[in-house]
Amino acid sequence: MIWVTWRQHRAQILLTAAFLAALGLLLLGSAIEATLYVSGHAAPGCPGSAPACAPLEVALGERYDAIYSIFGWMPLVLPALIGAFWGAPLLGREYERGTHRLAWTQAVPVWRWLAVKLAVLGGVVVAGGLLLSLMVSLWRPVFRAGIESSFGNVGVFNMVGVAPAAWWLYAFALGTLAGTVLRRTMPAMALVVAGVAVTMFTLFALSEHYATPERVVLSDTTVLADPDARLVGATWVDPSGREIDSPGAEVCPRRVDAGRSNRNTEAWEKCLFGKGYGYAVSYHPPTMFWRFQWTEAGILLLASGVMGGLAVRRTLRRTA
């Protein structure tokens, strides 16, 4: 059965491996090049969070614009591709071509056929996701030493830790189920792409409930000191500590800013802070990284298990 699985799915396996290898080479190349560039152009102590490092960061950003844009799309596109090309055809193509009547009438029982395919392909998908995470984790510090963004930026968050593996597995399970229900490859592929996108936005909206957010009242700025935190909400509090929607114009007059300037807003905020107002921010600090990673992975794994189980049940019910 393992030979059968390999022979039927080697195209996907080899393509994915080739993609990961190419991506690895791209990341490695850009990392080496960037290291050389940094050592030639960086001010002392850079790259880092010091203001003097900003020009370097901008320069790096411009140099590797293309890689950054690939990077930006990967968290959504890769799971969608896995779901569409690994999951959807797994049972969808068998039904579509009628080959399930060949495969499931041999001596190997259907449950074993399913178990081997799901275990082998699911395992390879998880391994691929972990490999991607490893490569990204090794690559990022070269550009962002000292500037952590793997928690606050959800795109980066989904590319490191266990998130890619969980997302890939989820997409694989979703594709498998879609192929089983629809019994056609193309519609199942479309469904999986839409499903992954919807899930990603849903989980992002849900993610602030993964833990109780911390709350801090700022008395001289509206910007959190930690740029990697995930903001949950913010509101003004009056001098008595009561939360208010927005301080009235009678407290501090506010004029509208023109163009890209925010001079008037800053003046207004300064006035409020001067009168004893505070800015209450609730947020998740970056120390929550692993809790969020495991919570999200747990949800995705559970969903994968349920969808995989449904696909198996539907297949074993034998309605040829």
């Binding site: 059965m1 071509r97 009628g98 080959t99 009547r101 060949l102 495969a103």
Partner: peptide, 27 residues
């Protein structure tokens, strides 16, 4: 029982030899 369905399904991308290997591995 051995079954041949009406449209005689086979894996079209397999070679004939690979189809035999398929049979050997699943029986």
């Amino acid at each position: 029982a051995a079954f041949v369905a009406q449209d005689k399904p086979l894996y079209e991308t397999f070679t004939v030899a690979e189809m035999l290997t398929f049979g050997r591995r699943t029986n």
